[in-house]
């Protein structure tokens, strides 16, 4: 069976005054129907740009320079705008990081939900209203019928994000790209929404790409993860395998910096250095300058190694646990 989404060699660049900035470089992955895939990386690793690229929402001066994205077998890159618009929200939807900036502050949430439904052929007012109420209750909003007339500022941050998620769910998309939807929220609400979303995805069979800088968050929801660094996918595989036996030193570094992995009373371990500037990125492994295992070989681009359902890009991978 072919996957729901298949990205091949996706490359997105930004033209800046300082030069061409490759935010996403040769990224390939698949998402099966109903699957939750985690996309993890530090800020500036290109994970959000990857998400926006999938929906064709890259604004100038950025553009998708190369690659292919197939959704249900249909090529999205270079697709005519009208068709792409028809797919957005209906086949592939997206939820953003900060719910206080994504919702229109001047429209009631009922009106905003109606606009999203009308965008995909919604005509019958009472049917649209019923669907809006249904999705609002799916995301755990109490008394949804009454809340339709409320404005975004009348909701708390967590509730606002639930509304945004409901809007993404309205047209029953097959895939939702969630770009750090819990990062701006309180930790307790974060956990709550995470578990709700996991159940929701299972119940309605929607696939998700969950983007986060937080390995702990991603590992709690995703069955498979992709680790991104400087626009590249460095390692990918089933979440459990990657966490228990990372092959890439960068993944290991991310794991070591998690509080849960630290010995109580000792300082958290950090990856030395900081993310490189993408403008003057060289041909070699981008992580090499911060990597304890780096050697001269790392000046050249590591090829992708494959073992079973795991892939990584490293000249000196951590040995597999026997």
């Amino acid at each position: 069976m072919s996957p729901l989404l298949e990205a091949r060699g996706l490359t997105t660049v930004f033209e800046t005054r300082a030069g061409l900035l490759p935010a996403v470089r040769d990224v390939s992955f698949t998402v099966a129907a109903g699957e939750i895939v985690g996309l993890v990386g530090e800020s500036g690793s290109g994970k959000s740009v990857t998400g926006f690229s999938l929906l064709g929402l890259i604004d100038p001066p950025g553009r998708i320079a190369a690659g292919s994205v197939r959704l249900d077998g249909e090529e999205l890159i270079g697709l005519e705008q009208g068709r792409l618009r028809a797919l957005r929200g209906r086949s592939i939807a997206m939820v953003f990081q900060d719910p206080s900036t994504t919702l229109n502050p001047l429209l009631t949430i009922g009106a905003q939900m109606r606009l999203a439904l009308e965008a995909h052929g919604g005509r019958d007012a009472s049917a649209m209203r019923a669907r809006a109420i249904e999705t609002l209750s799916q995301v755990g909003i109490a008394d949804p019928a009454a809340r339709l007339g409320a404005y975004p500022h009348q909701f708390s941050g967590g509730m606002r994000q639930r509304v945004a998620i409901a809007i993404a769910l309205l047209n029953r998309p097959k895939l939702i790209v969630c770009d750090e939807p819990t990062t701006a929220l309180d930790v307790s609400i974060q956990a709550q929404i995470l578990s709700e979303m996991r159940d929701l995805a299972r119940n309605i069979g929607t696939a998700m790409i969950w983007i986060s800088h937080d390995l702990a968050v991603v590992s709690s929801i995703a069955s498979r993860i992709l680790v991104m660094y400087a626009g590249r996918v460095l390692e990918t595989g089933p979440t459990r395998d990657v966490l228990s036996a990372p092959r890439h030193p960068y993944t290991q570094g991310l794991l070591d910096s998690l509080p849960a992995h630290a010995t109580p009373g000792t300082a958290l371990r950090q990856i030395p250095g900081s993310t490189p500037s993408l403008v003057d990125i060289g041909p070699g492994c981008a992580f090499a300058p911060r990597c304890a295992r780096a050697s001269e070989a790392c000046a050249s681009d590591p090829a992708e190694s494959v073992a079973g359902n795991r892939r990584w890009r490293c000249h000196h991978p951590i040995a597999a646990v026997a």
Partner: peptide
């Protein structure tokens, strides 16, 4: 350039809307 507009686009709303 705001997320409000990007979010509306992500929901598939037309440019006219």
């Amino acid at each position: 350039l705001t997320d409000t507009i990007k979010f509306a686009r992500a929901a598939g709303e037309s440019e006219w809307t």
